[in-house]
Design a protein around this nucleic acid. Structure first.
Lengths: 256, 256
DNA sequence: ATGTCTTTGTGAACGCGTGCACAAAGATTG
DNA sequence: CAATCTTTGTGCACGCGTTCACAAAGACAT
């Protein structure tokens, strides 16, 4: 998971816990799938299964938003989609800029899930002059020199950093100075930002290293376990194999 | 942040809390940078600043690994790099397969940070027959039909899913059946896996939606705040602007 | 209208993670 | 060797998040 909010001491949003906010998009996705199948209502149990969480947790999460369910029946899908979208500020169609159009930046630019999720790629920015003008995902790449004007002209408040680590802090500083207050960072660096700016990070190698840790532990356990019990592999399924979209959702970041 | 470990009730690794495990790669990166600059020792304070965490937290984290520091001096950089690497199982050079070679899959394949971090791309797999044989990042893409044999022949236990959401569960099932026990999922889907298989997910649109939530809240606060105070922007920096690598680290997932 | 049945909404208990603050440990100096 | 200074390692308290378990609310049938 990408983690790393940056320092928000008091204020506690508006009573909505951070952990709940992080799950709202998950619920929204499951609800959207139901909506497309014209399912009118869902119980907390069903929806929780589709989202891969505990039903009590889901109900508590929703209770922070208000009482949108009907006892004995469940939740109205359309209404809930509306409420969560509103809570997340998605009706707003946020413009975002992507800085660093390498493989990853290009993959992000091609990501189909932007528009349908309330975001719009306002501009692609790269430091390489050779890239300037070259269209990526139908959008011409612009040079870093124009970063400030692009942000101000489009009223961009969310920036995505997909540059090499060495350039990340510098780009970040410029973004913030130009008015960006939320940053999604794909570079493997700790970014330092002023108060009031949110940073979330996505880091491939960290995720892999966490998996490696558990993998190693499993290997160790198995070694000691096989010595005792015959190690019968349980076939129990987690997350309930809910058909999360026969149509499927929009590709992760791009079709294979 | 990519989140989403899957169900590990008791067992608690070996006393090392999950939250600590998630930070070890962060410490390792900071330590590696120091090591390259031939810095012999660091205090918890310095290292914590470089990793962007609280120094007390860092000391507590290290205390789970053992007592590797020297009071009055700090921690021996090389020794700590060794200990954390060992704890994460990185000396092992884990082979990984990437399934779904679209923009994202290609970006991941080109990621320079694999080798230096203890991972090796064993194979690239795609369902499109037209891709078969085509080299990406110097590695020829192989067809999905060979998935099982590739995994078994190479002893792969970690798989990366970068396919469209519709294909993710199916790919996941095949990976698991073939012996993969850790999965990094980039597809926007809830994967269901048997017990004993770890799943971590990275989801762009979820991260953006979380940012949008805070962004919206900031906008609302500002509207009410400007009515009261003149809203002086504080220039306080979080995370301490530690020079996280003048050389910089390897690009996030690819150079821009 | 009354009773039954389903499902929500939440009070309360518990556990994990965080951060403070300080004692213990060792380095260093005279 | 004693005194001082630095920095670790951790006991403790607090707060957030999760889960249980159940009462209240409404749908639905009779």
């Amino acid at each position: 998971m990408a983690t790393g909010r940056t320092h928000r001491p008091a204020t506690r949003s508006r009573g909505i816990p951070e952990a709940t906010v992080a799950r709202l998009p998950l619920y929204l996705r499951a609800l959207t799938a139901l909506s497309e199948r014209s399912v009118p209502t869902v119980s907390s149990e069903e929806l929780a299964a589709a989202a891969g969480v505990n039903s009590a947790k889901l109900r508590k999460d929703f209770s922070y938003l208000g009482s949108y369910g009907t006892r004995g029946v469940g939740y109205d899908v359309e209404y809930l989609v509306y409420q969560i979208s509103r809570e997340l500020g998605l009706p707003q169609d946020w413009p975002v800029v992507i800085v660093g159009i390498g493989n990853l930046g290009a993959a992000l630019a091609n990501y189909g899930g932007f528009a349908s999720r309330g975001f719009r790629v306002a501009a692609l920015i790269d430091a390489d002059p050779a890239m300037a003008g070259k269209p990526v995902a139908g959008i011409p790449v612009q040079h870093t020199d124009e970063l400030e004007s692009i942000i101000q002209d489009n009223g961009v408040s969310i920036g995505v950093i997909a540059t090499p680590a060495g350039a990340a802090q510098q780009v970040c500083d410029r973004l913030v100075a130009a008015g960006v207050t939320s940053i999604l960072n794909f570079a493997p660096t700790v970014l330092s930002v002023p108060d009031g700016v949110d940073v979330r990070k996505v880091d491939l190698s960290i995720e892999l290293q966490i998996l490696a840790f558990h993998e190693q532990r499993k290997a160790g356990e198995e070694a000691t376990a096989t010595a005792e019990s015959p190690a019968v592999p349980t076939a129990t399924r987690t997350e309930s194999a809910t058909d999360q979209g026969p149509d499927g959702d929009v590709p992760a970041v791009m079709p294979a």
